[in-house]
Write a protein that binds this DNA or RNA. Structure first.
Lengths: 144, 144
DNA sequence: TTTATTTACGATAATTTTGTCGTAAAATAA
DNA sequence: TTATTTTACGACAAAATTATCGTAAATAAA
């Protein structure tokens, strides 16, 4: 479904958000440990999410990553997915045709549109706050 | 969503099915041309689908690929997807956790289950006959 | 049996994705 | 200013996916 980068990115953001709720910055080593992902790879992904304004960082002592709590409700999972995987998951043809629409549909077009729209709707209405709250309360986990 | 192999595999099966409806065998060159895929790669994919009993082939003159018309209703898209991509699309965690279920869910588990179940249902109820009929009647296309 | 045709198979290659490493740059405190 | 800590960045490496190629095996016609 999603690339590894995207899976790691979503998990990292959720984890950092729980910490930011308490006003704590997180260092990359802690993030990668908690989401069970390679440290350097995670760092690279976070850098690209910073460029998309999804989180902030600070270098140097007492530095680390954080997410502005005021933004947690407006940042949606779809924003992270779009930043890391682009929009093929919403817009692309399920069978890989360059152009596929209701005028010139691939054999699975109508069936796919239904699923994709639900997926898009789900990702666009699920906020970082929603997901971080579940993790913080212990209802959900990021690794087993 | 699906791997390239899977996209090619589904398209190839649909195309071969339309020909088999007319009792015609198809050669690999024609298949790859009609689905806009590399010939040798397509051949390899079809070989693995033959091993899964989804289609048949015959070597030599007047050889080629065919799908038993009697099977077209019982072969579902899910069978092709499972043969080529496995079952991670139905069973895997959206965030890549090795174990993720309602007892120990990832933050997106419940939301994902809903989408995945619909996807699974769709793939398991869509037959090769359904898709080949649409293509044969000109309602749908395999390349632009 | 010989020849022509077509798929089967295994080795190899190219590309993309995933992952690693070393060093630069920034921030802070002493 | 200097030392320490932490992210930023770019080059590089490994692994997985996608794609190609040569030859073997099968089939059938001549």
């Amino acid at each position: 479904m999603f690339s590894k980068s995207c899976e790691y990115g979503i998990k990292a953001i959720i984890y950092i958000a729980t910490k930011s709720m308490d006003g704590e910055r997180v260092k990359i080593g802690e993030v990668s440990t908690k989401i069970n992902a390679p440290e350097a790879f995670t760092a690279k992904i976070l850098t690209s999410l910073i460029k998309r304004d999804i989180l902030e960082s600070k270098t140097g002592r007492f530095g680390g990553f954080l997410i502005d709590p005021k933004k947690m409700n407006s940042i949606k999972v779809s924003d992270i997915v779009f930043a890391l995987d682009g929009d093929t998951i919403y817009r692309g043809c399920g069978l890989g045709l360059d152009e596929c629409n209701s005028n010139q549909p691939c054999p699975m077009h109508d069936r796919f549109v239904k699923i994709r729209e639900e997926l898009r709707e789900m990702l666009e209405t699920t906020s970082i706050f929603d997901l971080a709250s579940g993790l913080k309360s212990g209802k959900t986990i990021l690794m087993r």
